[in-house]
């Protein structure tokens, strides 16, 4: 068996089925979208070749709605990296130091991740509900009636309300990744630190976090890419509204293709999202490589 595994031909043969599947399901559609993005096409009749017109339209036409949606997704990426991940990291470090009820808290924090996004969306739309939502109930009961508002229906608050939910949901996910990484650090390192008289905080910053660098890299990449292509929760909570204030590139793309019948223009958005994610992944990798310590 060992010999088979070292045989290049055998490797090819074994990789082939999965590769073909991947090729047909992922690679080909991406290239197809690339082709569609060069067309002015309603999805039914014959498309007209328009070159890079759709890509230019992304940033010049339709009231700049794509640029705005892109801005929204970048805000989310920022929130994820600078708010969500630090919270996850703090929770992971605390849990990994073996506090009482470690397993219980680990499970509790992870629950939002395993619940379906649609359920989460319904749950939070009740939380934000104008009449019986817990937020407004709280405000009314404490005499803060001037703050009561239609959280998801108000252009000024809808975006941040939706982002709070997204950030909240995936805290547990990143926490679990970081937690398992922190747990795998050998105990003797901690013992040595203790003998040297390092406090818990110093240990965390000098030993645990630097050793978690690979997983932090993964988390940052996931957080950024996940934010750029986020769709489901926004779709359930606001559908991109009110007045397009919570539109992100993927909801806009969906609307463009399936409600406006602009397959070419929508495909340009799709391809833009793919390229944007790839580029940012590479950038994150570069940053982590160049950092000699963290």
């Amino acid at each position: 068996m060992d010999k088979v595994l070292r045989d290049k031909k055998a490797i090819c043969v074994f990789v082939l089925p999965a590769f073909l599947f991947f090729f047909a399901m992922v690679i080909i559609p991406i290239f197809m979208s690339g082709y569609y993005s060069l067309l002015d096409w309603n999805g039914m009749s014959k498309g007209i070749f328009v070159g890079l017109r759709n890509y230019i339209d992304l940033f010049t036409s339709y009231n700049n709605e794509f640029a705005k949606s892109l801005g929204n997704s970048l805000i989310l990426a920022g929130l994820s990296v600078f708010i969500q991940l630090p919270i996850s990291l703090t929770l992971a470090l605390i849990l990994a130091r073996g506090i009482k009820g470690e397993k219980f808290y680990r499970t509790v924090y992870f629950i939002p991740v395993i619940i379906s996004t649609v359920v989460i969306g319904q749950l939070w739309s009740k939380v934000y509900h104008y009449e019986y939502g817990i937020v407004n109930m709280f405000l009314r009961n404490f005499g803060l009636e001037n703050l009561v508002r239609d959280w998801l229906g108000d252009k000024g608050t809808a975006l941040i309300c939706v982002f709070i939910v997204i950030v909240w949901q995936y805290i547990g996910y990143h926490m679990l990744l970081m937690y398992s990484s922190a747990k795998s650090i050998p105990e003797d390192l901690y013992e040595a630190a203790k003998i040297d008289g390092a406090s818990e905080l110093t240990t965390a910053f000098k030993i645990t976090i630097p050793l978690m660098k690979p997983i932090l890299n993964v988390c940052v990449t996931y957080a950024i890419v996940g934010s750029l292509k986020t769709f489901d929760l926004i779709w359930v909570l606001t559908g991109g509204g009110p007045l397009k204030s919570t539109e992100v590139p993927s909801t806009l793309m969906y609307n463009t293709i399936f409600f406006k019948n602009q397959f070419g223009y929508g495909s340009a958005m799709a391809l833009f999202i793919v390229i944007e994610c790839l580029v940012l992944t590479v950038v994150v990798q570069k940053i982590f490589k160049s950092e000699s310590y963290l």
Binding site: S125, Y128, H129, Y130, E131, D150, W151, L152, G153, D154, A158, T238, G241, P242
Partner: peptide
Amino acid sequence: LTEAGAFGPNTMSV
């Protein structure tokens, strides 16, 4: 009509 409050306070999120 909207300014008269015809559609209620939270129609945008319903």
